[in-house]
Nucleic acid binder design. Structure first.
Lengths: 189, 189
DNA sequence: CGAGCGCTTGATTGAGTTCAAAAATCGTGG
DNA sequence: CCACGATTTTTGAACTCAATCAAGCGCTCG
């Protein structure tokens, strides 16, 4: 929801208390591929801004199967939105797919946003609206597209991610098995 | 995204220019069941706040099949979020399922939000975050739940809507056919 | 009271899953 | 830099859930 690059750089004319407090509340971490930043069940889950690398968020269903919710490459924000907005325990796991540099935005950091100046908040509103739009698209694709159509959409929308990520993860994002994806790809050549 | 009840009522201490301009830009309409308020393809799509009645939003796929994206009962807001945030033509149809009283929030009204005072905007941000959380939940359910589990979730989450809406619409929301839903229901009794 | 819409039921079909195993690719230590 | 083990991708067969097709029932409202 909130890209902190924005705050840290472009809004430097507003060097007020709040901005500084927020800056101070952020944690920078460097993590290795495979690091789990957040687990399902965690209270007051964080947001993670990807400065470098690639993260994924996912659920694990009762059969132990992983379902990828989102990927987050450079300059993307990733979080468990439902957990954040309803103050409920996290559902999503968040994990590094590549070695990554991450900015952690804690619950506490988010609360400080309440006092940010109007233009910054309005900006955040616009950004969140886009994120919401992407989710709408995702729901509609899951409902009205075949697996093949979803795959085509995916490579059109995220051409860079297709290269960086093993197929089984893409299959998981699309809501199909790796075997089914393999079959799709064969047919399409 | 933006509940105007909020604006019109609770924020009446802010009787400034902007609030009044926004109030003036809203249109109130009364529509009969079956009225299509918005069609796919429309540029600069509106938001619709339901004062009374029930709306649905949906896409129509290339086979002519309808897929319900959301229901909106009293006090809910419904819109094509993707169209709004990317200024692209609408994908969603929006239609009255019952005779309804609707407040139309045009693109123009939305733009006036840019000048609203910070607390109001911050409120909108919170509200949008919840909407986003609901969408996240929807995606995860579509991916990790069986049709039966999705149906159970639906009646738990929207007990009132189950009563007011024909089964074929619920089936469409769940992403299954009316026949499949009928079979589910039979097994579950 | 009849026509049409919506719900149910059954038979058939098909997309995608599951299970199993082979082929290809990756990554790490020697 | 190569080799070997581990992981990933592919392939195939059997199966499953839900879609499609088709028909009958029941309610509502005109």
């Amino acid at each position: 929801m909130i890209s902190l690059t924005n705050l840290l750089n472009s809004s430097n004319k507003l060097d007020d208390d709040v901005t500084n407090k927020i800056k101070a509340s952020l944690k920078q971490v460097v993590v290795k591929k495979g690091t789990v930043l957040q687990r399902s069940g965690k209270m007051s889950s964080n947001s993670y801004f990807v400065k470098k690398g690639l993260l994924k968020s996912y659920v694990i269903d009762e059969k132990g199967k992983e379902h990828i919710f989102t990927f987050a490459p450079e300059n993307w924000l990733i979080s468990d939105i439902e957990s954040q907005s309803y103050n409920s325990p996290a559902v999503l796991f968040i994990e590094a797919i590549e070695d990554s540099e991450i900015e952690i935005i804690s619950k506490h950091s988010l609360e400080l946003f309440k006092e940010l100046p109007q233009p910054v908040i309005y900006n955040e509103l616009q950004r969140l609206l886009k994120r919401c739009g992407t989710l709408q698209r995702r729901v509609l694709m899951l409902m009205s597209f075949s697996a093949k159509e979803r795959y085509n959409e995916f490579i059109k929308t995220y051409p860079d991610i297709v290269q960086r990520v093993p197929q089984r993860l893409i299959a998981s994002y699309l809501g199909i098995t790796p075997q089914a994806l393999s079959t799709l790809r064969k047919k399409y050549k």
